[in-house]
Deep mutational scan, measured.
Amino acid sequence: MGFKLLSKLLVYLTASIMAIASPLAFSVDSSGEYPTVSEIPVGEVRLYQIADGVWSHIATQSFDGAVYPSNGLIVRDGDELLLIDTAWGAKNTAALLAEIEKQIGLPVTRAVSTHFHDDRVGGVDVLRAAGVATYASPSTRRLAEVEGNEIPTHSLEGLSSSGDAVRFGPVELFYPGAAHSTDNLIVYVPSASVLYGGCAIYELSRTSAGNVADADLAEWPTSIERIQQHYPEAQFVIPGHGLPGGLDLLKHTTNVVKAHTNRSVVE
């Protein structure tokens, strides 16, 4: 069995187990497998329904001669939608809004960016022009300005110390501490036991640490421990890039980060 097929099978099995364990909360999309990078042309966006009122959005972007996937989250909030992270750029984010209108038909009224990198804030200006209120932590807003990236308009308070959590509509926002970046936030959907790890969490097929220019490698494993301790009931975990899975993604990420750190020390 090929690795790609095995990865998709694991996603399907995880979703099936969740649907059985929580039949009222989960209505997993039966329309197909989780979209992969090879299936999404740059400039297009796919939506994948995880649970009743919960979707991931998947886009792709060219970077350094390669094409990478990027995940975000959409959560229903009454007759409105909360968006977590842009679709990595203005063109993708405009396509995301169009796809949401086509498939869901509810307005996106608020959006949260989970850290300051372009795959999370690139497209904020498109959201703002569409009347979406954009939010991020003060740290993310400051770092985005320093980096020359787009800056969300509103500040999220109460997320300055490791372990801080605040309720934001249908989700809980959690600051686990520094990891992929010093400002990275985690998003949890309690009604569906869905954990969105953003770039602080890796997919299972990833074996290298990737972009760690703004990471705190020493603190990252401790931050992941905080996530595990705060959300032990999480059933569906979405990484910032690639295929979702279960809580095993947290341990896998820790292993990859520690291996990278150990290699760096040896070198």
Rank of each mutant, 00 (worst) to 15 (best):
H154L: 10
R76P: 04
A259Y: 09
A25P: 13
G53C: 05
S205I: 07
D79F: 09
A25C: 14
L10K: 10
S193D: 13
I104W: 00
T261H: 09
L81S: 03
S7H: 08
G169Q: 05
V266G: 13
W220Q: 01
L159V: 11
S208Q: 10
I227A: 06
G123N: 05
P69D: 15
S22W: 15
I227H: 01
A165I: 13
E39W: 12
Y48K: 12
G163W: 06
A90H: 09
D64E: 07
A178Q: 09
V108H: 00
E203C: 04
P41I: 11
D77K: 04
K8A: 10
V11N: 09
A25T: 15
T93W: 00
Y12V: 09
L204Y: 09
I100K: 01
H230A: 13
A259S: 10
C199V: 00
G32N: 09
D119S: 00
V112C: 05
D29I: 08
R128I: 10
G72I: 00
D52A: 11
S27P: 14
L127C: 00
V266C: 04
L5F: 13
V189T: 04
G210K: 06
D85T: 00
R206D: 06
T14E: 03
A136W: 04
P152S: 06
V126A: 07
E101H: 14
V265D: 13
G148L: 09
G169L: 05
V237H: 01
I186G: 03
G210N: 04
P190N: 08
G148P: 04
R226V: 08
D216I: 09
L217S: 05
A165Y: 13
L83Q: 01
D64W: 08
R128V: 11
N149V: 10
H241G: 00
V124L: 08
S62K: 06
R120G: 02
Y68L: 12
G122D: 10
Y202R: 07
P170G: 08
E39S: 12
G210Q: 06
E157L: 13
D79P: 09
R167K: 12
G169H: 06
I100E: 01
P35T: 13
Y68E: 15
T140M: 03
N149E: 10
I227L: 09
Y12I: 09
P35R: 13
Q229R: 13
P152R: 00
V54C: 02
N149C: 06
A200H: 02
I50W: 05
V108C: 01
A87C: 00
P23L: 12
P176F: 00
R206F: 15
T36S: 10
D79T: 10
L10T: 14
M18A: 10
V37D: 15
E225Y: 10
A15G: 07
G245W: 03
A130V: 11
T93N: 00
L247D: 09
Y231L: 00
C199F: 04
D164I: 08
V265F: 08
S56G: 15
T253D: 01
I74Y: 04
Q229I: 14
S191G: 13
G72E: 02
K8M: 14
D214H: 09
S7M: 08
S56C: 15
S31G: 10
V265I: 10
I238T: 03
P232T: 11
L143C: 05
Y196Q: 00
V67N: 15
A98I: 10
F236A: 10
D125M: 08
G197A: 14
A165G: 13
D52R: 10
